[in-house]
């Protein structure tokens, strides 16, 4: 490395100021090419190991069932879809992702306490997934809900993060 900083020794042909000598040019070239090669190999390795979801893995459209089968104020768990389908007292739908926003444990619905509870660090959330008790920093994530032909369909492909619950998040039939 030291050699790079050294000024090229003036020679008979090349003594006007600090012109790039052939030797230094080659050295810099080799250095630049090595860096490029390293970058390429690193980039290729990262792409090689890049995560990708496989066919049939979690993440896609889940048909939850007809609107009428979910009474107001009910919570139904969909273990394969990894969400709870909540129907609020006003009749709006909300698909709550079961992953606790604190450290990723799965929350359980406790019907007698009317709350979601995380057994890892004791966070609890109300019916709408809003934080009742920290350490969870924000409300449970949701999945987009759409209602087509009286059927509730949940898209588990993309979780939506939110700070708190608002009425606009509810989807009505």
């Amino acid at each position: 490395m030291k050699h790079h900083q050294k000024k090229p020794r003036p020679t008979a042909k090349n003594d006007d100021r600090s012109q790039l000598s052939r030797r230094n040019f080659l050295r810099m070239g080799i250095g630049a090419l090595s860096a490029l090669a390293l970058l390429e190999v690193g980039g290729a390795s990262l792409l090689f190991m890049k995560p990708r979801s496989l066919e049939g893995e979690f993440g896609g459209l889940v048909k939850a069932g007809p609107v009428d089968s979910f009474p107001s104020g009910s919570v139904v768990e969909f273990p394969d879809g990894r969400f709870f389908l909540v129907r609020s007292l006003e009749g709006g739908f909300l698909a709550v992702y079961r992953r606790c926003t604190h450290l990723g444990c799965s929350v359980n619905w406790e019907p007698d306490q009317n709350r979601f509870f995380c057994p890892c660090h004791a966070s609890s959330f109300d019916l709408h997934g809003d934080v009742e008790n920290p350490p969870a920093p924000r409300a449970l994530d949701t999945f987009p809900v759409q209602i087509t032909d009286g059927q509730v369909i949940v898209d588990t492909g993309r979780a939506q993060s939110r700070d708190t619950f608002t009425q606009e998040q509810l989807v009505y039939a």
């Binding site: 273990p79 990894r82 450290l103 057994p119 890892c120 660090h121």
Partner: peptide, 27 residues
């Protein structure tokens, strides 16, 4: 069982100091 963490869900003993800290502070 990805649906049901055990209660209490604890890390291995050498991470329990860190997990205990988590109960008292923002992560």
């Amino acid at each position: 069982n990805p649906a049901h963490p055990p209660n209490p869900a604890k890390a291995a003993w050498y991470f329990m100091g860190l997990q205990e800290l988590l109960l008292h502070m923002h992560p």
